[in-house]
Design a protein around this nucleic acid. Structure first.
Length: 297
DNA sequence: ACTACTCCCTGCCAGC
DNA sequence: TGCTGGCAGGGAGTAG
């Protein structure tokens, strides 16, 4: 589910309720998600004030006033939603328009602000591939989940030369290489497919084939780096992609899924002007790849 | 060191 | 109307 643009959208959606708020209490409704919750999870969070919400790749980072950091990963099906006390009351009594499936509400953060009860932030995750772990600001970069992550595809850091250097010598497919979080951190199945289509490059091409010795930029690496940055920026601007039940923290939907050129568009006509190809679906590394074999080569 | 494959878990949808 | 199989935004762990 959530790739970088979705996590960034979630982060922005949670900021108003969470930044500057104090944790009044935490309901932890099961012992584990993908991993066991840290010991005394609720106890360690209670009474702390949230100073900032940050993001690294697909990780949401909740910073507290004493340097504690809660590292959250949403896995495939995780989501957060913000409920006001009023929402919670209505949901209990009526079918509230914004109510949703609460079967997999695993964690509820009760917030307070200026001593008054604030919002509830609820973590829901049907498949439980998500997880929450603790770290500390001073050792965050060395945390096992974050230490090996590659470059962010936001901003201008990822250019043709860097991409060429990262992919040089990689004998795997271009698709698999772009999914490797150690190289570029934050891309997932959707945005890799979309970036490759924008760059007119085949997902089946050998990753090293778009590079030059010494990591010098090539026409193709420049094109792909630009496509990756653009698709991520466009998706963030659109509020991410809403597939199935994925919604923003405030319950609204992102709309980038309407802009997909190839993802989940098997058998549809390629929309590139002048191209008369049909979008195909193939399986790479056990996951679906969507692309146009006519214009992507 | 790399690369490839399996598995974790639940829900949903198409096809029978 | 069931049932069944396949598939889904991810990544850790293991085996070559």
């Amino acid at each position: 589910m959530p790739e970088l643009p979705e996590v960034e959208t979630v982060r922005r959606g949670l900021v108003p309720a969470m930044e500057g708020a104090k944790i009044a209490g935490v309901e932890q409704r099961r012992a584990d998600l993908r991993f066991p919750f840290p010991d005394d999870f609720a106890g360690r969070l209670g009474g702390r004030t949230i100073t900032a919400l940050a993001r690294r790749a697909k990780y949401l980072l909740v910073h507290f006033d004493d340097g504690l950091v809660l590292i959250c990963h949403l896995g495939m099906s995780g989501s957060f939603r913000v409920e006001t006390a009023h929402d919670a009351m209505l949901a209990g009594e009526f079918h509230h328009p914004r109510s949703r499936d609460t079967r997999h509400d695993h964690v509820v953060f009760h917030l307070e602000r200026d001593g008054a009860p604030g919002a509830h932030v609820v973590y829901n995750d049907p498949r439980r591939f998500g997880f929450m772990l603790f770290s500390h600001e001073k050792e965050l970069d060395r945390h096992p989940s974050l230490a090996g992550l590659g470059v962010e595809p936001t901003g201008n850091a990822l250019d043709g030369a860097l991409l060429s250097a990262l992919l040089h010598g990689k004998r795997t497919s271009l698709k698999a290489a772009l999914l490797d979080q150690r190289l570029i951190a934050g891309l997932g199945n959707i945005y890799v497919c979309e970036a490759l289509w924008r760059a007119r490059l085949s997902p089946e091409r050998l990753a090293t084939s778009i590079t030059a010795a010494g990591g010098k930029a090539t026409v193709r690496s420049e094109r792909l780096a630009a496509a990756i940055r653009a698709v991520i920026a466009d998706a963030i601007a659109a509020g991410g992609s809403s597939l199935r039940d994925y919604v923003h923290a405030d319950g609204s939907l992102g709309y980038f899924q309407h802009a997909f050129a190839v993802y989940d568009r098997e058998d549809e006509a390629c929309t590139r002007p002048g191209c008369h190809g049909i979008v195909k679906r193939i399986t790479q590394a056990g996951r679906s790849t969507f692309y146009c074999s006519t214009c992507q080569c």
